[in-house]
Design a binder for these strands. Structure first.
Lengths: 215, 215
DNA sequence: ATCAAGTCTGAAACTTGTTCTACATTATCC
DNA sequence: GGATAATGTAGAACAAGTTTCAGACTTGAT
């Protein structure tokens, strides 16, 4: 039973990343969409706590059991919501690529743009980021997808000519770490927006440091 | 009522950091210690989920209501547990300071030593780190204490002659971000120990970059 | 069209964090 | 030493995530 539920959830990753799993019928796709929409909506109101499974079920006109078949836990649901939002953001960002000369500057600019987007919906950001870092092993595949998406966004912003070196990938990993953790400190009120900006700019310096020419 | 509870919890930060708040009697100090011990013990068994408030209460021979007076939530309790463990670690680390020549190497060595300690009790690490990153605004003061402790450990490892510059403090912040987030990825099985090591070493390069001489 | 398998629904039950209440114990202060 | 406020205890009650189940609805294959 859990296996079946997992199959549905797995099938449901994202348009861009959809693996083979049982294709969803239209009504199922619609249900899934309604659920994600309700989730994002409730999250926008009151953050992580405001996303209550019973409410999500009701808002999306789906039985509680069905909700759990699609998303085996609240964290799964919110991580999927994040996948969804990231997809949007990636598309949006691609439209106007960052303008800086240096890769470091472009990455910093991109992340700050993303950060400003999050600031517009801080509660939603709270729900998604908290879920992401709270996720345990059972959510690893989904969290990994989010991570790959984020990596893609950063690599995009770097605008490399050649494929990234191992060193550069390490730098990107560290940037991602900093990004998540800085968001957390901001969301929990322990760091200001300015502070997050500084942290992002600081970590982006690693990009110069790992550029292939070895300064 | 919540106010009183907070007072107790606040009073309870740590020996080294204890503020003014109502001093605890001996029996209260003993209770607090029993609670923290039970918490760490249960956490060591099965991580975050294994720390169940009723069990903590029973293990430490305290009524549930009392437990909540000392620690107003499970997250508060686990963050306090982390404070406690960090204190130990700080003391331990001070005994044998890192041997590297460069500050960056010393910090990396120190963090890897801490990491190895965490590996010995991965479940405990799980409980503490998950609580830390899941903590919301109501736990900010306590989380901040943990953060200050961590900063102190890193600055210690750097072994600076002069007080740190603003730039260096930024680097330390980023290192902390990376440290927490890398731990999370390791704990949730999405990164290997080797990967964490690389991430730590990578981010520590920022220290050279922010050394006062401006290479 | 029909049968079987799989899916969805509605509602109850269960778990664990958190709160509340009524009463007992301890501490403080005169 | 006794009044009184603060603290502690036991246990019920409540809230929200999760599980379970019987029955109704879809779907796909024959």
């Amino acid at each position: 039973m859990t296996a079946e539920a997992k199959a549905v959830a797995a099938a449901a990753t994202t348009p861009a990343t959809t693996p083979a799993s049982p294709p969803l019928t239209e009504r199922q796709e619609a249900r899934r969409r309604r659920i994600l929409h309700a989730s994002a909506q409730l999250a926008s109101r009151g953050g992580f706590d405001a996303v209550q499974m019973r409410e999500v079920a009701e808002s999306s006109s789906v039985a509680l059991g069905t909700l759990y078949r699609y998303f085996p836990s609240k964290v799964h649901l919110l991580v999927a919501t994040m996948q969804d939002q990231l997809q949007h953001m990636h598309t949006t960002l691609r439209k106007r690529p960052p303008a800086g000369d240096e890769p470091a500057a472009r990455v910093a600019e991109t992340l700050m743009r993303a950060f400003r987007a999050l600031q517009r919906e801080p509660h939603l950001a709270d729900a998604m980021v908290r879920a992401l870092t709270f996720a345990d092993r059972s959510v690893s595949p989904e969290v990994d997808t989010v991570s790959r998406l984020t990596t893609a966004i950063i690599l995009d912003a770097m605008g490399l000519d050649a494929p990234p070196t191992a060193e550069q990938l390490s730098a990107v990993r560290v940037i991602e770490h900093t990004w998540h953790s800085a968001l957390i400190t901001w969301l929990s009120g322990r760091a200001s927006i300015a502070q997050v900006k500084i942290d992002i700019e600081t970590v982006c310096r690693l990009i110069d440091l790992t550029a292939p020419e070895k300064a």
